[in-house]
Write a protein that binds this DNA or RNA. Structure first.
Lengths: 327, 327
DNA sequence: AGGCATGATTTGATCGTTCAAATTGCAGGA
DNA sequence: TCCTGCAATTTGAACGATCAAATCATGCCT
């Protein structure tokens, strides 16, 4: 590539030592004002930037954050992670970090990739996505004191699952959707979700249930569960409409799309994640502040890595409801 | 992190020199069989992996490939780049490379990021996406001899735009869609695209036009253009159906979705990019082999970087048509 | 005038791997 | 027996930044 400028080149041009150049950039307070100004002028003139490999060898810090990328393109909800990833890349760059990607198809292969990345590139931290029950990754990283933050909560109180996390309050999202439907006059509001046992799914159903109770209404068995997908949405919606529901809160946009296919005029449907599909078909959907979530992950990590402050342990963000034709 | 194993540790444990350990991994042909086997056993036992920063300082190679990530989440077509990015990350890892992400909002800020990344992390190459007319990036990289491949063709014969690229044949995609509609009995097939001047748009229109001509049919002004989006699709479809079209080939899934909103029974519509939206609403759409495109990009780069073979200059891949209810 | 303290600056060493030259040992031929 | 050639192995140096100890210069006090 173009001829490289090193700290020795700058030192020579400025008539000072290498250390004075390094101090000018990293500990300016130990350099006399006049010297510092002169060195900065030479740095700017020569276009000097520090070589990260050399810095890393001496400091042990790569200023890299590693995250898995998923093949989400076949799914309606896949775009959630890309928006998060974009936000993460921007926030990290602002904090002086870069994002390193990897792929993995299960916990064990992801752990094998952790070992490889840690040994070769030495990322300063990991961001975990798609956390789940019995997630092997979190305890592996905790045991080895590898800094990380999860986008998604641990759904267990076990000590080995206590780790830094950022999440969006799913229950608050379905609560807002439910309130919106109640405000529109609906009294028999159904819920289409996933089988119990999924932390995220249980949380989203809790928001619907709790809000009905707050309005003196009973769920009355007006909830159905199944694997995420349009087909599940369709069959669950048929059942619920047959049972007298006039409005449906769905745990995902895939489920909501299926419900919409079945819903007649007057039936209100909401989804979750505010995906491009929701935008395309006019679906009211819970919007997660993914840019904010990404920024929060970087903030938690940089506080742990760069700051003397005690690390923050978690951050729960609030969603909003994007209102469209469907409700 | 966990105690590090270095090449010196392995050498000591094996009773050989550092160079013999390095040779065992990188030039095994210069190490006696018996010695090599013994050293490999010690490497495995100690769990040694080379420190990439140290290697990079000596070889000048980071084994990183940098690519921009876009905030595609607000667009229906955004998922195209995520599937590509996932495929790229997997293919790169297979070839011994990792993917480094950055963001940029225009050519100039992207070039500023190039300068920063090149000086600090020294990526071995860049993958460019969203190439366009008067793209400043390609000439900047060519002038500095920075290795890169574009996912997308240069649409100009100017010497300064001759660079390695991988693309999917858009014209072949719309040709296949057009043939499919003709085979279904349609004779008045319209085209909904973008304003002339976009290389991608012009190419996709050419596929439709050429296929009609091959069947002795004339386009008859059965084409409309506008900014990508559902609204454009709707108004263009209205026009074309009014002009007698019974089928529509659209340059994107967004346009196709708009067209579908307007199309009555019996009107066939196809889109482009086979996005999750297409899957969700039952739209026949041209599918781009993004995993293959990603693998081709890595192949072109690794051939240029790691091989003595003369570099390949480009690769044009073939799409397929995913047939659903809409056509 | 000399000694001491302190701010400012310099320089040797280090990080871990690869490069390249030097060294070693062994076999074959004169 | 000695010399030469070559395969196998070793070791000093380099990559570029930071760390830390050493050095230098200046000012103040005795």
């Amino acid at each position: 590539m173009a001829d490289k400028v090193t700290i020795t080149d700058v030192a020579r041009a400025a008539g000072v030592s290498r250390q004075t150049v390094s101090n000018t950039l990293n500990s300016p307070e130990v350099v006399r004002d006049e010297t510092r100004r002169h060195v900065l002028e030479v740095i700017a003139r020569l276009g000097y930037r520090a070589n990260q490999a050399a810095r890393q060898m001496r400091t042990g810090r790569s200023r890299l954050i590693a995250i898995r990328i998923d093949p989400g393109g076949d799914g309606i909800n896949g775009s959630v992670l890309d928006r998060f990833l974009h936000g993460l890349t921007e926030s990290a760059a602002r904090a002086g970090y870069r994002i390193l990607l990897y792929t993995a198809h299960d916990d064990r292969s992801e752990i094998a990739t952790f070992e490889d990345l840690i040994a070769s590139y030495e990322p300063d931290a990991f961001v975990l996505t798609a956390t789940h029950h019995d997630d092997l990754r979190t305890s592996w990283l905790l045991e080895r004191r590898v800094p990380f933050v999860a986008f998604g909560r641990p759904w267990s109180d076990l000590p080995r699952t206590q780790h830094p996390w950022v999440d969006v309050d799913g229950a608050a999202g379905t609560a807002a959707a439910t309130r919106h439907l109640l405000a529109a006059g609906h009294r028999r509001v159904g819920f289409v979700g996933w089988p119990p046992g999924s932390g995220v799914g249980d949380d989203r159903r809790a928001g619907w249930e709790r809000t009905l109770a707050e309005h003196g209404l009973r769920p009355d068995d007006l909830h159905r569960a199944g694997e995420d997908g349009i087909a599940t949405g369709e069959s669950a919606a048929r059942d619920l409409l047959g049972a007298g529901a006039t409005a449906l809160v769905c745990a995902s946009d895939s489920l909501a799309l299926g419900a919409l296919n079945v819903a007649g005029p007057g039936v209100a449907v909401t989804g979750f994640d505010d995906t491009p599909v929701a935008g395309a078909i006019g679906l009211t959907s819970v919007h997660q502040p993914l840019g904010e979530a990404a920024a929060a992950c970087v903030a938690l990590l940089t506080r742990a890595l760069d700051s003397a402050e005690p690390p923050a342990t978690h951050m729960l963000l609030q969603p909003s409801l994007t209102i469209r034709r469907s409700a």
